[in-house]
């Protein structure tokens, strides 16, 4: 195409050394090239960043959730057992009939922040006053919902079950947080099922329900 055919608002920007300043504001042909090259380079850099960022995610083998069976036969009434599962302390408690009676008293209800377990800190099968499948046995994740310390087992006759050593959060023996504690939520109940009388399996739900650690509002 002869140079004279270049339209007036597309300046002939062929020679970058000429210092052409006749049309400083209008679009130049080279602008299209440099914008295009820049956009492609940016797209290439973004594509290269994908595997780099992707690889920063955990190795799926390291975060795979396994199951763990717990035998309850040698857990004496009124005592707690701590087991590690999914890298977390799991507290299993065998509650006495007296303790279960306290958990149902209206006086305790009034002192609880979420007595009905409305917040999704447990599966549907544990959204009851005893927060468990079998009332006698409670399973909770032993991580205070305030700032993550492990609450100390401290059953009292007034309904207290755990006391968090970090900031004095109190929980009853169903893992429900007492008013006045800095912790906002009840202790989470992990997914578990009763595989046979006296044996719990962590990481598995009762038939017909689905719940996982990821569903919990706050661990």
């Amino acid at each position: 195409m002869p140079a004279s055919a270049a339209s007036s608002n597309l300046s002939n920007d062929g020679d970058p050394m000429s210092g052409d300043t006749t049309c400083e504001t209008c679009v130049k042909r080279r602008d299209l090239l440099s914008t295009g090259v820049g956009a492609m380079a940016l797209a290439g850099a973004a594509a290269a960043a994908v595997p780099v960022i992707d690889s920063l995610a955990p190795n799926p083998d390291d975060v795979a959730v396994t199951t763990l069976d717990i035998d309850l036969h040698d857990l004496a009434p009124g005592t707690q057992r701590v087991v590690a599962w999914a890298g977390k302390p799991i507290l299993v408690v065998h509650r006495t009939p007296q303790q279960l009676a306290i958990l149902q008293s209206p006086a305790l209800f009034d002192r609880l922040r979420d007595p009905q377990s409305k917040v999704l800190q447990q599966g549907a099968y544990a959204a009851n006053w005893h927060r468990s499948i079998d009332p006698a046995f409670l399973v909770v994740v032993g991580i205070c919902t305030h700032l993550g310390c492990v609450p100390r087992f401290d059953p009292q006759t007034d309904g207290n079950g755990w006391l968090c050593p970090c900031h004095n959060s109190h929980f009853d023996l169903s893992g429900r947080v007492l008013k006045g504690s800095p912790a906002p939520y009840n202790l989470p109940v992990p997914p578990y099922a009763v595989v046979k009388p006296g044996t719990l399996r962590l990481g598995e739900n009762p038939a017909g329900s689905s719940f996982s650690l990821a569903d919990i509002v706050q661990i």
Partner: peptide, 9 residues
């Protein structure tokens, strides 16, 4: 084999 995008890197 297991790390996301590990094979590319």
């Amino acid at each position: 084999r297991r790390v996301p995008s590990g094979w590319i890197l």
